[in-house]
């Protein structure tokens, strides 16, 4: 009896803890996002939010739905495996609204990016020293970018 009485202040201290714990539980209930824990220890809704980010590169299949003529040319040449936007850049806005014209390309910059000679590149990859190769003449004078092999009489 006297133990209980003389330890009363300890119960008061413990009571504060219990109250704080319940307040914590209540707050937690309202604060934790609804979808938290649906798949794992994270907010499941975040997946959908990330998946909803805007797209900038439309993808070659989208390009090809309209530009099948280019595809036909490209398919036969060395650049068959190069996707449209590898050179043309991101064009989702153009695919969405064809009246938006794609930016003009500069072959002097574009071709060199891949084809400038460097010992670090794979041996079989076609490489040129721009100064020696053309002496400043634009690439497209001789090479058609969509099918770059020089057309000497026959196709290809």
């Amino acid at each position: 009896m006297s133990l209980f009485k003389d330890a009363g202040h300890l119960f008061r201290f413990a009571f504060l803890f219990v109250v704080a714990f319940f307040v914590f539980l209540v707050v937690r209930h309202f604060v934790v996002p609804k979808t938290f824990g649906e798949y794992g220890h994270y907010r499941a809704a975040a997946i959908g939010e990330i998946a909803a980010h805007p797209i900038h590169f439309a993808g070659h299949e989208t390009c090809e739905t309209c530009h099948a003529d280019i595809l036909d040319v490209k398919k036969a040449g060395k650049h068959a495996g190069v996707n449209c936007e590898a050179c043309h850049g991101p064009l989702a806005n153009h695919a969405n609204d064809p009246s938006i014209a794609p930016p003009k390309l500069d072959t002097a910059v574009l071709c060199i990016r891949c084809h400038a000679v460097s010992a670090a590149k794979p041996k079989g990859f076609p490489q040129i020293d721009p100064a020696q190769h053309s002496g400043g003449v634009p690439c497209e004078t001789c090479h058609q970018p969509h099918s770059p092999a020089i057309q000497t009489g026959g196709a290809k």
């Binding site: 330890a7 009363g8 202040h9």
Partner: peptide
């Protein structure tokens, strides 16, 4: 800070000491 308890009897303090 007393939490409303001013019991500082020797017995209470002995309990405090043990705890």
């Amino acid at each position: 800070m007393t939490l409303g308890s001013d019991n500082v009897s020797p017995h209470a303090l002995a309990i405090d000491h043990k705890v």
